[in-house]
């Protein structure tokens, strides 16, 4: 742990691939023992940030200190003190649960690790499957196994990249409990990335909202939510609707255009909706959605779009990296 009580401290962190700026001068201070969320749409730079902070990818510019060590100057010291849980669950399926733990212990140069490994298996309720190949585990078990691996060497910080992506509601709920449990029981700082609003809201002490490589706002979920007092009405309409027409509706304080989609800022959606329907009764409303104050509306407020807009539930890594490679050339 560093003297300033920060598990992670980042200044002007930047990563470029050719002309593509994946992470753009971000600053973060994450107190020891907290759960910090990087919330943003797919391709916002969340995973790249984790790769920079774990020393897997070279930093283009700026500085980062993790668990008291400078990532650029002492990457190996950082790697001894961090754990990592991948979005896509990365285990060696040909090896048993115990063998995966054994390998992790060798790579982290541990001796005398078996007691802790036993306890971790017990904690994650995997003891009776320790000898089975992890390829035969259920999705939830695989995720737990990955967290056990990440905790084996007593890390000070755990990075969790989209920890619940692609999981069903039950497993997601279980993982939320595990993440807060791990944070409390092990005193480990958690940095997680997510594009699920409710996840960041439920788990994180503090959240940084990231878009196009830049952190647009940071604060506790309640602080962020209190930034936005108004509701948003999102509309998708026929082409005949104009900005002027929408702005003229009583109670609409701001209109933002996104092609055929519109975002209206209103004091109270319930009160304004009848007027909206009235004003647009001859125009086609194709879709309508009300966003009450939430982290989503904070994102809409700042960027004019939804966090999940344009992104599928499962990020298209191949496409993303293909773009990166093209940019690198």
């Amino acid at each position: 742990m560093s003297a300033d009580g920060l598990a992670i401290s980042v200044h002007g962190l930047t990563k470029t691939y050719g002309r593509l700026v994946a992470v753009d001068h971000i600053d973060m201070s994450i107190p020891t023992g907290s759960i910090f969320g990087l919330l943003g749409p797919n391709g916002a730079g969340k995973t790249t940030t984790i790769k920079l902070l774990t020393g897997i990818t070279d930093i283009t510019d700026g500085s980062a200190t993790v668990a008291g060590f400078d990532v650029r100057r002492e990457p190996m010291s950082v790697k001894q003190r961090v754990g990592w849980v991948a979005a896509e669950v990365i285990l060696d399926d040909d090896l048993s649960g115990w063998e995966n733990l054994w390998l992790q212990a060798q790579l982290q140069r541990l001796s005398d690790w078996k007691g802790r490994a036993d306890q971790l298996l017990k904690y994650f309720e995997l003891s009776d499957r320790r000898k089975d190949k992890v390829g035969t585990y259920s999705t939830g078990m695989r995720k737990k196994m990955e967290i056990a691996l990440a905790l084996l060497h007593e890390p000070e910080v755990i990075f969790m990249d989209e920890p619940t992506i692609g999981l069903d509601a039950n497993v997601r709920r279980m993982l939320w409990d595990l993440i807060t449990g791990v944070n409390r029981s092990f005193g480990v700082t958690v940095l997680l990335t997510s594009h699920y609003i409710e996840e960041a809201d439920a788990l994180c002490d503090r959240v940084a909202i990231i878009d196009q490589g830049r952190i647009v706002v940071t604060g506790s979920p309640s602080e962020l939510k209190s930034r936005v007092k108004e509701d948003f009405i999102e509309l998708e309409t026929s082409e005949s609707v104009t900005q002027e027409k929408l702005a003229a509706i009583p109670g609409v304080s701001e209109v933002r255009s996104q092609g055929r989609a519109w975002v209206l800022r209103v004091a109270s959606a319930e009160e304004v909706l009848p007027a909206v329907f009235h004003a647009l009764k001859t125009d086609g409303i194709r879709r309508i959605n009300v966003e009450k104050p939430s982290l989503e509306s904070v994102f809409i407020d700042i960027t004019g779009k939804r966090i999940d807009q344009g992104g599928s539930d499962v990020p298209d890594y191949r496409k993303f990296y293909a773009n990166l490679r093209r940019a690198q050339r």
Binding site: R109, V171, S185
Partner: peptide, 20 residues
């Protein structure tokens, strides 16, 4: 789906070989 029991205590005595 069950949740983890946060009451399990963990030994914190893993020993690391030096970076030699």
């Amino acid at each position: 789906m069950s949740t983890a029991a946060p009451t399990v205590s963990l030994p914190t005595d893993v020993v690391r070989s030096p970076a030699t």
